[in-house]
């Protein structure tokens, strides 16, 4: 899927009431023109943006999402924008796992006095999305697969594991864990990426199980992972009580989701 002639991206923008929304208004008052591709949703703080909202936007076919907050240190709610950045960076990582360009999700900072900056950022982002093409044109799989993958990501982001991890990032890095051991950012990033992959794969497997029973091989075929990777995940998922063996077909166990 290459970008079509005359493709007009549709972009969702989350703007925080105090800085970026005011900056956008200032762009208006100053008549700084920019392309009409962005649809703005106003929130009080950029930290209101749940990563699942971003996934909702992509799941429904939007080509790009931007989240603008106050400059670091200037957040009206003090630390909101720090949380925003961590969550959006996490979401960008999962988009990469899906096979989408993480550049489709932008987090940046615009102050109430920066009308020109707002217009420039929006213009640049619109251009970038135009280059990338419609959602999924950078991927090698079809629309149905994209939908499944996005759903798995959304489930992963809605689940407690990743939310807990990203929520504790600041504390782990700056204050340390229960043993007082501080985690260097690099190590944390490594842990985060591993967790993202695990949760993503887990949810893809769960989705593939749907309402039916599948063998490891069938699952592997559906989600495009090796049987070894599927099995590794299943072991953990069984331990978490998410899946169980329902019956054996020939020599292969058939797994189902537990608890419906």
């Amino acid at each position: 899927m290459n970008s079509e002639e005359g493709f007009e991206p549709v972009i969702l923008g989350f703007l925080c009431n105090w800085c970026s929304y005011a900056g956008a208004d200032l762009a208006g008052v100053s008549r700084f023109q920019y392309p009409p591709n962005v649809r703005v949703m106003r929130v009080m703080c950029s930290a209101r943006v749940d990563p699942t909202f971003v996934l909702e936007a992509f799941t429904q076919g939007l080509d790009g999402v931007l989240v603008f907050g106050c400059h670091p240190g200037d957040c009206h709610y003090m630390t909101g924008n720090y949380q925003t950045e961590r969550r959006i960076v996490m979401t960008q990582k999962i988009l990469r796992e899906v096979g989408l360009s993480p550049e489709r999700l932008l987090v940046d900072w615009v102050s109430a006095a920066e009308g020109q900056r707002f217009a420039s950022l929006v213009s640049k982002f619109t251009e970038k999305i135009r280059e990338l093409g419609p959602l999924g044109s950078e991927a090698v799989f079809e629309k149905e697969e994209l939908v499944r993958r996005l759903k798995a990501s959304s489930d992963a982001l809605a689940d407690d594991r990743l939310r807990w991890l990203v929520g504790r990032e600041k504390e782990l890095i700056e204050e340390g864990n229960v043993f007082g051991e501080r985690l260097p950012q690099e190590e944390f990033d490594h842990v985060m990426l591993e967790s993202i992959r695990r949760e993503y794969e887990k949810n893809r497997i769960l989705l593939s199980l749907g309402d039916g029973a599948l063998t490891v091989k069938e699952m592997a075929g559906r989600v495009g992972l090796s049987t070894r990777e599927v099995l590794k995940n299943l072991v953990v998922m069984e331990g978490e009580g998410l899946v169980t063996v329902s019956h054996i077909e020939g020599s292969s166990p058939k797994y189902i989701k537990t608890g419906g």
Binding site: A47, R48, R87, D160
Partner: peptide, 12 residues
């Protein structure tokens, strides 16, 4: 009313 807690709650 920033909403930071809501967007981060592990149990939603």
């Amino acid at each position: 009313g920033c909403g930071m807690c809501g967007a981060g709650c592990p149990q939603r």
